[in-house]
Structures are given as structure tokens and as C-alpha cells.
Design a protein around this nucleic acid. Sequence first.
DNA 1: TCTTAAGCGAGACGGTACGTCATGTCTTAAA
DNA 2: TTTAAGACATGACGTACCGTCTCGCTTAAGA
Lengths: 203, 203, 203, 203
Amino acid sequence: MNQHRSGPVRSAAAREAVLAATTRLFHEQGYDKLTIEGIAREAGVGKQTIYRWWSSRGAVIADCLTEGRLFLVEFEVPNTGELLRDIEHWLTTVLTILEARNGGELVRSIVAAAAEDPAVGDGLSESLGVERSLTARLAVAVREGQLPADAPIEQIGDAIFGAIIVRSLSRKSDSGESLRQLVRFLFTPTGRQGGAEAPTRRT
Amino acid sequence: MNQHRSGPVRSAAAREAVLAATTRLFHEQGYDKLTIEGIAREAGVGKQTIYRWWSSRGAVIADCLTEGRLFLVEFEVPNTGELLRDIEHWLTTVLTILEARNGGELVRSIVAAAAEDPAVGDGLSESLGVERSLTARLAVAVREGQLPADAPIEQIGDAIFGAIIVRSLSRKSDSGESLRQLVRFLFTPTGRQGGAEAPTRRT
Amino acid sequence: MNQHRSGPVRSAAAREAVLAATTRLFHEQGYDKLTIEGIAREAGVGKQTIYRWWSSRGAVIADCLTEGRLFLVEFEVPNTGELLRDIEHWLTTVLTILEARNGGELVRSIVAAAAEDPAVGDGLSESLGVERSLTARLAVAVREGQLPADAPIEQIGDAIFGAIIVRSLSRKSDSGESLRQLVRFLFTPTGRQGGAEAPTRRT
Amino acid sequence: MNQHRSGPVRSAAAREAVLAATTRLFHEQGYDKLTIEGIAREAGVGKQTIYRWWSSRGAVIADCLTEGRLFLVEFEVPNTGELLRDIEHWLTTVLTILEARNGGELVRSIVAAAAEDPAVGDGLSESLGVERSLTARLAVAVREGQLPADAPIEQIGDAIFGAIIVRSLSRKSDSGESLRQLVRFLFTPTGRQGGAEAPTRRT
DNA sequence: TCTTAAGCGAGACGGTACGTCATGTCTTAAA
DNA sequence: TTTAAGACATGACGTACCGTCTCGCTTAAGA
């Protein structure tokens, strides 16, 4: 039924060595210094073995990404019942991790990889727990009435993630205060529609 | 007293040729295919002339960016008095231009450049008119009471721009409907907090 | 019918396939383009099967050589009783065959193989019929008094063969006239010792 | 009058380093172990510098050959007036040098190079002094009547050289006795046709 | 007006990495 | 147990760019 193929099978050891080496080099040197030859050298693997199984260095990174090798923590959004506080907590954690290196180099590297390779782009937002975790928390908020029923929660997640990226690309470093302002604006019940009448309603 | 210097001064023609060639190649092939040697060849210029005046290919791109060579239109946000409609109009225009090429290649190229080079990152959001134009429109909205006085308009701009980037990196193509949902959420007067009773419940 | 059992049954077929494929590729592409992998592919044989039986590509060629697969004709030297005419006839035949390809490529290929691999060198001169046939003819000449009894016939054979090789390596193409001059010098009864006294002795 | 060409000129140092390294490696390891990368490494030169000026490793060897770097001595044929003795002397010298290494490896290497590359073939026989020196000595012999006026001296030179090659390819090692037999046959005044009585017997 | 030093095009240089190919050893599944 | 198929580490191939460094010219300011 299935097409038969004889011969040796893919070496699990080689695959593991490549992904491990890639992760190591990616963290140490960033995406633009990452080379196929460097990975092969570090992994003790032939170049051809990499080319046999991955189409580009981006594809290798994408595999690392989807296996959770690049971000070693789960960016879980807590659920205390108070949306804004939960999101702010999550934001602080995320920023701490992402900027632990040298000023957001990690974000820029992953963005560069995503810009170059479709496969990386696919696993991008999900890998940060944005989709899996942040969106889930927002869904809860919708269910509990903290957000309107028609709130585009996925797009809101993208917007927050996008703001993090933009901030990182601009090399701003304000300890995340500006991002905190953003989420406060987004999730403060008084909403953003201020103006003349809003303040009165707000008091 | 003054440092003596004889000889010719920087050639305006060479500078123009380099920037023009860079713009051309950037649009034709994208950032990752862009090379110093390619620019020099295309511009009919010596490599050293480029290295004399720019520190990297990123710096050349940054110059193109700040001179408005990469995006040939001004992304002006109209002001009809109705904020949401204006933003949606601007969004449609921006997406039309950015995706005219092959599926957001243009955005990804500029993002890659920004991820690699600080100078590009600096001029990034501004170059798209996000800062100059979108933020200005939001400031007007604040003044006119369509947004609360403490709305972090710059961060909102970044969030929208960031959402565009994230969408582009993920290679989604839904004609911008998801982004339109986002701005509708952000700028609809009814706000996003779920219905009439939610605020009361909070107090 | 023979598909029935395991063991060395297939061996003979594999051996034949390898030698046939090698011969084909050698003639089509020359020695330097000849590869083990290419032979295996062409023969429909595993690489290991080749390595099991032969130590190198030179060894495969050597087998082809000793089995007469590389030169499909026998370079028989005729025996009409007239030595010079016989040799010249043989020479013409040999050159016709050897240069039929593209300007002596065949000779150069076999020489390259011989230079690289001892086994090929061993079978070299013999394979062209130099030893078996030319030397035999010279031996007859010695017996019949057309050559002196102590003529080093094997060395003479080597010299003629060597001259062919040198000519081929130098890429000269004079339709063999220069070689014909050589054999005329070697086998003309008047000998090569010209000068004043020799002709007189000759008359 | 002459076409002007700006820009830097070929580096004599790089050229020298390449040829010196090639000569060294050729003697140490033979032609088949000789690689462009090896030469570049040994010479402390970029690979591209080699490819810029030579079309193949054969071309580099050819340059070494024509500059007399591969054979460090001049194979001068003496002229004592006695042809055979002179040639035998030359032959002894040549064989001593050529087989000093490991059993004719040097000859086989140069032959392999010549078989692969036309340029090497061109400079081949000349480089050994066959053309320049041996042929010159034979020409003298013709003038002095030791050889007939119409003796094809160039072909005789090729034949001797070719016999050396064939001997080397066959890995024979008899201290050159067989070759000495050949030249004795060629240059002994009594000629090679079997004595005084043989012709008569033949008629 | 003449000197002179910088800018310019061109491109050679020592390097690094690319993606491909072949080597010789090894492992697997089928016959 | 041999075979074909082919994965593996190794290493050379020839190409493209990197950033630096001459070249020989053109050119403009200062003497």
C-alpha cells in the first residue's frame, strides 16, 4: 500500500545535534551570524546532512522554534480574574526574557529570520505564546464580559506582539513603560473613547 | 588653524547614483539579495566610494528611507472629522501599496533591514508616515475628544504598524479585513468593554 | 527462474553490469569524469557492491582493460614478410581507432588511469596489443634476420607506444605522419647511421 | 597608443607564492593530491586569486613547468663527439633524478597532469630538456654524419621520452637497463639490421 | 598658474560561506 | 547473507561578496 523505501533511515542523533547547535549559535551570535557551515561545524555533522533535511537556515530555525528551543520558558498569561493586571504581569515577564540579552537582539534575530523565511513566520507569533496563551486569556475575558463579545482577540494579540517588535526594531529601551501604557489603554474598562462626554461618564 | 584640505569634494552625482541604484535593486530583488557590489555595479561606482560614505548596506537603505525613496507616496491620513473612517481609509491605502508587490515582500524587506541595522530601525516607523501622519491624526482626535486625553497615541500607532508587520511576517493575506477589525475595535466609540453591565460590575 | 535464491547468484550479473557501465561511461566522458557513484547509478548497483570487489575506480578500469572492453578491436600486426609495411599498416589502424574520438582523448584517458593506478599501468601496453602482437611481429623479424638478433624488441615496442602517447599528450595532430617517419627510421634496412661511411657499406 | 587600464595590477608576490606552493605540494604529494584549496592554503592566498589567473590546477602546473620549477636541473646532453656515450650519460642522469622520489611517482604525476590539461601537455617534453637539449644533440649528430641526414630527430626524441613514460607507467624498475638497450639499438653504428649476412639471407 | 591631495572608477587581494558533488564507511529492508 | 538504496562525516569544487587596499585619473582649493 505504502511506497517502500529501503536503505538507512534518518539519523535522530544528527537531527538533534543540528537543532541543538543551531539553538546555541542563535543565542550566542544572533541570526545574521548564523551559517550552515557554522551549524555543521558546531554539530559535528556534514553540511550535506543539513541540506538533505532542511532547505535553508531559516527552515532549521523554524524547527527550533516550533520545538520550543528558542524560548525556554512558557509565556503563560495568568488568570486572576483581573484582565489588565494579568496582561501587565505577562508583559513584564516577556520583556524581561526578551531583553535579557543585549537590548532586544533576540527579538530582532527572530524577526529577521521570519522576514527571510516563510516557515519561521508561520511559527512566529505562536511560539511566543501569543496565540496559545495570550489569545486564550483574552477569550476568557470575552466570556466573562471584560471584553466585548465581538472583540477581535487574535488581532489584539498581534497588535501587542507587533508593538513589542516595533519597539525592538527602534532600539527603544524604556523598561516597557510605553508598552504598559498601551495595554492599559486597551484593557482599562473606561475605554479609549475619551472626549467631552466620556470623562463625565467615567467619574 | 583650520585643518588644511585640498582636492575635490564629495560627488553629488555618485551619491545620487548609489541611492538610485539601491532603491531600484531593493524594489526589484528585496533586501537579502542587496549587496554592496551589486549597488556599485548598478550605479557605475567604485566600491570604495560607497564604503567611504556609508558604513554598511543598512546605512545606504536608511538614507533611501529617510529621503522617501522607498515608499513613493505619502501615507497621509485624511481628516474628515470621523476618526474611524479616516483610519480605515489610510489603512486601505497603505495595504494596497505595501502588498502591491508579491505578498508583502516589501514590508518584510524593510523589516529585515531594520532588524539588521539600527539606522534603518530609527527611520522605520516614521518613514511609513506612521509617526508623522497617523500620530498627528490621533493627536487631533485627542484634542477633539474622540480619544481620551491620556491615550498613548504613539503606542497606538506602533501597535497598528506592528500588527501590519506581524501579518506580513505570517504571510496572511485576507485583504486587510483582520486589520480593519482591529482599528474598528480601537476606535469605535462604544469601546471594547463588554456591554452596559460590565463597568457597573467593576465598581 | 534464477530470481529464486539468495547468495552470490546475482554477483556475476552485478559484476557484468559494473564493467559494462564503466566501459560505457569511460568512452562517453573520459576517465576524469568517471566516478564510483556514476558507475553504480549507471549499472543499477549499490556503491558497496563496487567497493566490495574493487579497490578503486582504477581497479575497475583495469578489469575492463584486461577483458578487452576498452579497445574493441584486436590490433593485430599483419605479417606479409615485409616488416616496415606491416608496422606502418598496424600504425595506421591503431591511430585511426585511437583518434576516432576527439583528438586522442581516449589515449589520454587511459594514460591518466595508468598514471593513477598501478593495476591499469600493468595491463596498459599489453592491452593495446603492443606486447602481444607488435612484439610478436618483431620477434619474427628477428628470426628472419630483418632485425639484428640482439634487438631489444620489447623496448622498441615501448618506444613506439611511448611516441604515440607523447604525441597524444602534446595534442599534435598530423595524421600520424611523424610516427610513420619514426617507424621508417627504425625499420628501414639502411638504418639510421647515416654519415659518410654507412652508405658505402650499404651499397 | 596602448589601451589604458586603471586599477591595481597583478600581485607578483601572490603569483610567486602560488607557484612556489604548487611546486612544493606537487613534489610532496603528487598531482592527484594537489588541490586548489591546498595550494591556496599553503600559499596564504585566497582561492579566488588562483581562479582569477589560472583556469585549472593543470594551468598552474603548466606555469611551474615552463618556469623550470618542477625539474630543478637542466638535463643537458653532453657532446663528447661520441653520440651513444653522450645519450647514455644523459639517460642515466635523467633516470636518477626522475626516480629519486618513490619509483617514478614524479613522472606519473607529470603525465597525469599532461593527460588532463592541454597546457601541461604543451610544455611537457620541452620541459625535460628533450626538445631543447636532446634534439639539439641529435641535430649535431646528423651534421657530423653519425645519423643519416633524414633522421627524424624530433620523433626519436619523443620515442625515447615515451619509452621512459611507458616504463614509468608500468612501474618497472630495472635501473634503466632496458632503456639503455633501446638507445644502444638506436645509436649503435652497426645498426639494427641483423649483421652483414642477414640481408643476404633475406634476399 | 602650478601644486597637491582628495575623490573617483576600477578591481586585486585574503577571506568566509555558499550549495553541489564525490569519497569511502555504515545501516536498513527485501529477496 | 548478499544486494540496492542511501544516510553519514569529510572535504574539494567553483562562485559570490565581504571589507581593505592599491592603481592612475581627474579635479578643485591654496600657494
